[in-house]
């Protein structure tokens, strides 16, 4: 049975949910707004966590950052699950095309030997770096406060797992499916001198208790060094030498980082603008992790670009980002 009644005859009683009406008035809301605002429980928790008995299940005190409203941490991309998966799903088509192109045109065989070796020893170990970033963003989702930030952190964690998987695919493609390339990459991550400062920094970040500090350490400072170093500087260098393979196979990761920065910078900006204490905390965390990340990136910059000083140049770009976000740098 088709019911055909004009909209004016069936009038809505209200346009949206009360918690949104209280913020914005009774009008239709976007899917993003309905999916994000006030979704996390706020009060009257029944039991203390056995894994952290001095806190409530969801507790704003797991960071020293303070906010009047934790839902100020909006995502400029307005990702809710559906928008996120549809966007990422669409991006996979061009990734597939790139992988197919590389195979079809025999770009692996055409690659210079030294670049191929460099990718295997100095890009493939980033699988583990991305895994660390995946763990850290799961941690931010677990211990963070407010769906606005925690949901985006979980999408971010998924992206990191995706990055690690593309690096894996690249290694397998480069070696004709030889798992030894992955073992070698793991070996370099564990033992190669150039990687040790970064691995140490990653392990230190895994034990950071304050989740907002962790956000700064991982998503701003470490990523702000590592991603431009490998997926911009090194990629450009190889491309300029005629080896476009790295650029093609990590195009997703490079695009992703450009997108992700907008989100990460916005979170810093929002927290810093909230009050001077936040700004001081964030500036301090940034200074600390920035310096550590620069030191960790130096041997890698030396190895892949032949210029350890490039780490400072990359950090200067990042400093500019953070200044723009309102930090004292």
């Amino acid at each position: 049975m088709q019911i055909d009644i004009k909209a004016r005859e069936i009038k809505p009683v209200r346009q949206t949910y009360t918690h949104l009406k209280e913020r914005f008035g009774d009008k239709p809301m976007s899917r993003y707004q309905e999916a994000i605002y006030d979704v996390q429980a706020r009060e009257n928790f029944h039991y203390r966590p056995t894994w952290e008995p001095d806190r409530e299940l969801f507790d704003p005190a797991r960071t020293r950052i303070t906010m009047g409203d934790w839902y100020k941490f909006l995502d400029p991309r307005q990702y809710y699950y559906g928008a996120y998966c549809i966007t990422r799903g669409r991006q996979q088509d061009s990734v597939e095309q790139n992988f197919r192109f590389v195979e079809k045109r025999g770009l692996v065989a055409a690659m210079r030997d030294e670049n191929r070796a460099l990718v295997l020893t100095h890009v493939v170990p980033l699988r583990h770096y991305e895994w660390g970033a995946y763990l850290n963003n799961n941690q931010i989702c677990h211990r963070g406060y407010g769906t606005a930030l925690t949901a985006a952190a979980q999408f971010h964690a998924a992206d990191r797992l995706g990055n690690a998987q593309y690096l894996t695919r690249m290694a397998l493609l480069l070696t004709g499916n030889d798992p030894a390339a992955l073992e070698a990459g793991h070996g370099a991550w564990m033992d190669n001198d150039a990687w040790q400062p970064l691995r140490r920094l990653m392990e230190d970040s895994l034990v950071v208790e304050d989740w907002f500090e962790l956000f700064v350490a991982q998503n701003i400072a470490m990523d702000g060094l590592v991603h431009p170093l490998f997926f911009d500087r090194l990629e450009k260098k190889m491309t300029s030498q005629g080896d476009a393979l790295l650029a093609m196979l990590t195009e997703f990761t490079a695009e992703w980082f450009a997108e992700e920065k907008r989100w990460a910078d916005r979170q810093i900006q929002v927290a810093a603008a909230e009050n001077p204490e936040n700004k001081a905390l964030l500036s301090g965390w940034y200074g600390k992790w920035r310096d550590l990340a620069v030191e960790a990136a130096k041997p890698l910059a030396g190895a892949v670009l032949g210029d350890a000083g490039e780490a400072e140049a990359i950090a200067a770009d990042m400093d500019a980002r953070m200044r723009k976000a309102g930090l004292e740098v």
């Binding site: 056995t50 894994w51 008995p53």
Partner: peptide
């Protein structure tokens, strides 16, 4: 008793 990390407070 409950298993926990650190002492579990009894808060009736």
């Amino acid at each position: 008793t409950v298993n926990s990390i650190g002492e579990y407070p009894v808060l009736p």
